[in-house]
Structures are given as C-alpha cells and as structure tokens.
Amino acid sequence: MAETSDMQHNTRPKGWYARNEIAITPWLFLIPAMIMFTLYVVWPIGQSFYISMFKWDGLGPISETGEYVGLAHYERLLTRDKAFTVSLWNNAKWLVFYLLAIPGGLFIALFLNQTVGGIRLYKSLFFFPFVISQIVVGLVFTWFYDPTFGLFNGIIGVFGFNPVNVLGDPKLATYGIIAAGLWPQTAYCMILYLTGLNAVDPEQIEAARLDGAKGLKMLWFVILPQLRPAMFIAFVVTIIGALRSFDLISIMTNGGPFGSTRVLSFYMFEKSLSEYGFKMGYGAAIAVILFLIMLLFIGYFLFRMYQDEREAR
C-alpha cells in the first residue's frame, strides 16, 4: 500500500518544496534548535560585551537606566581591583591542580581494569562521586574538613598532626575546595580511561610483551598512545570544569575567608547579584574576561576537533 502511494508521488508533477527537498529539509530540522540556541546562548554573549560597557543595576532597560562608561570597568579590573587579582590567581590554581584528576583517574582505572568477580560493582561505586551533585559533594566535604568532628582531622591526627581548620584558613581554603572538586572529577576521568582501556588492541599488547615491554614502559609506549581519544576528552572536561568551578565555592566557603577562595565565576556572581548590590555592568566585564580566557581553550579544542573532522572525510 505504502509503496504504491509513494510511486504516485514520484510520477506527480513536483512542487517547489518537492524539488528542493534535500536543500530545505536540513534547515527545517535546524530551525528550532537554532532559535533556542541563538536566543539563549549566542545573542547573550554579545549582549554581555555590550552591558560590560555600562554602569547598570539591572533595574529597568539599560538604554534608560544604564550609564555608558566605555572600557572603564576593564581598566579598573585590570589595574585597581585586588579581589579580581585574587580570583584570577585562584583560577590559575584551579587549572593546575584540577588537572591532577587526569593522572589520578588513570591510576584508578589501571587499578580497576581487571576481571575478578564483582569488579563491575566496584567500578560503579568508584564512579559514584561524579553522579551526585556538586552541592552535596560540597556539603560532604565541608563536614569532612570540619575542625570539631571532621574525618579529615581525625585522619591527620593519627599521623601526629595538629588539627587544621582547612576552610577557615585563607592560605589553605582554595586547596581544600580543589581537593573536593578532584573527587568527582577523578571519577569522571577514571571512567573515560576504563572505556578507553577496553578498546586497547590486545594484539599490540601481546606483540609488545613478546618484545619484552612491560610495566611503565608498556604503559608509556603502547597503552597511552592508544588512549589518546580518552585523554583528549578528559583534558577538555577537566579544563572546562576547572574554569567553571562555582558550586563548590559557593557552598563550602561562599568566597571566604576574606574573599580568599573567590574565582572569576564566583566573583562575577557576587558583583552582579549579591547583597553587595547589583553591579551588572561590572559583573559582565568580569564575565567577558573569563570568557576570553576560556575562548583560548575552546579555540584549541575546536581546532583539534576540526582536524579530526577533516581526517574523517
């Protein structure tokens, strides 16, 4: 039945749509996604650049209540704002130390890449921290570090250290939060590597074994090159995650003590929407700087993906 009606389609004189079907269909399918994405992602990026040049409290339209200040916000950020410098510096710490999730995840993946009974359950349970929200991770670690009852001080006490109030110490707090962030991120990297290890070519391993490679040498020269796709994704998600860190800081220290754990994303939020008043323009300027930093990485990632695309053809 369906076939005969389709046959009639073909013999009927074709309308404009039918003649251009292959050219038009993709656009029809793209329109809903493009409208939403433009409205909520592409256009707002441009708007943020614009807003960053105004002094604006977000009440009423910017054309009426905003005051044009040009690049003054950027000038102040880059020359006179100490809190901004602290945030930027903390972002750098996040970037560097968050990357520990990559070797950490690889280590756990190698440890778990066996076939003993119940290993599947172990893998899932090791992955567990990634599934729970960062808010809960933040709470869990706040209690973990608690100076009166936290497990952390109990553990270091066993080794003879005096109790430390990690989150109350401006010098330590950021590292404490990064460690909390590493917990789910390492789990994420682990699962990437486990999937990657699954796909490693067993024949190559056998061949390398016959040639006498084993241990670290095998890992470095035979396994890691084959893990490159997994490594790349781990790198991408970890860098993006480091620069996006917000939830943990907000829950664990709320930027304190004395603003020592602020990062750009948190500082931006604080300036725009907190009890200190709505400085939307200044906030937008911070966001633009964070965006430009991220753009360096995004550009690199896209370049790599573009090369893969070209190879795929």
Partner: peptide, 22 residues
Amino acid sequence: FFMFIAGNFVPFQILMVPVRDL
C-alpha cells in the same frame, strides 16, 4: 556544528546577566 560545540563550552557567567534579563 562548531557553533553548537563552542556554545556548550562557554562559561555560564557570560550568559547570566542577559539570560536573567530575558
């Protein structure tokens, strides 16, 4: 395609003020 990928990586903060406004 690359626009969709890139958009997915941007920091939330660059969208915050305009999206809240919208």
